[in-house]
């Protein structure tokens, strides 16, 4: 287990060097996205023959932003500052498993190097991480103020009117955002390891083993 300071965009080598249990401080630009955003990306950009004209410019923006970067599963509490800019007030991670039906395709299509959230994800995402050189980064659930303080700037926001504040694509610049690798690009997942180990202990303690 090691600690890394990494700057986004990440290279494939950056990600391949990481293993489950490593702590990483992330700096750079990433994009928030949860349920509505994932459904939209997959239906509008990926499982389609042609991206509609009206969505073309956002598609280009997202392609540029996400290459080598990450999607953060987060529905922030935001505040509008004087002059119209936005700031994050609370920005803890939300449960990631809801995006399991979409994430593998998003990783592949946009060339993500990571996904950030809480609770871990399933076998499809794990396989996509292995094939395409990405990792699942676990943020600390409930650490809303700490993470909001790591968000130094809200660079842009897309789909705020259509999806609402928590579901919008918030483009944020973070500095030293603390996360732990819980699924790596080598097929390892802390979530399944811890579950299996605790299952054995449970069997011993209750006498069903």
């Amino acid at each position: 287990m090691a600690t890394y300071n990494l700057t986004i965009p990440l290279s494939e080598a950056d990600v391949r060097a990481l293993h489950v249990g490593d702590t990483v401080m992330l700096t750079g630009v990433m994009v928030t996205g949860r349920d509505a955003a994932h459904k939209y990306m997959v239906e509008t950009f990926i499982r389609t023959d042609a991206v509609p004209e009206s969505e073309q410019s956002l598609y280009e923006e997202l392609k540029a932003l996400l290459k080598g970067s990450m999607v953060y599963h987060c529905g922030p509490v935001v505040r509008q500052l004087e002059g119209g800019r936005w700031a994050f007030v609370a920005a803890g991670p939300t449960t990631s498993i809801r995006e399991e039906p979409y994430e593998a395709e998003v990783i592949e299509h946009f060339g993500l190097r990571g996904v950030i959230g809480k609770g871990g994800m399933g076998p499809n995402t794990l396989r996509a991480c292995q094939t395409h050189g990405a990792a699942y980064f676990h943020a600390v659930g409930g650490a809303a103020s700490l993470i909001a303080n790591a968000v130094k700037e809200v660079v842009a926001v897309y789909k705020k009117e259509a999806f609402g504040v928590p579901e919008a694509f918030w483009v944020i610049r973070v500095e030293n955002f603390p996360v732990v690798v819980t699924m790596d690009s080598h097929g390892q997942s802390i979530h399944s390891e811890v579950e299996a180990a605790s299952k054995d202990v449970l069997a011993r303690l209750v006498g069903t083993g």
């Binding site: 249990g21 809480k118 609770g119 871990g120 676990h138 600390v140 659930g141 732990v180 819980t182 802390i190 979530h191 390891e193 811890v194 180990a197 605790s198 202990v201 449970l202 303690l205």
Partner: peptide
């Protein structure tokens, strides 16, 4: 004591 023997840890990191 026994819950902690399960080894799940903070956030399930172990």
């Amino acid at each position: 004591r026994e819950c902690n023997e399960l080894g799940i840890g903070p956030m399930g990191f172990g």
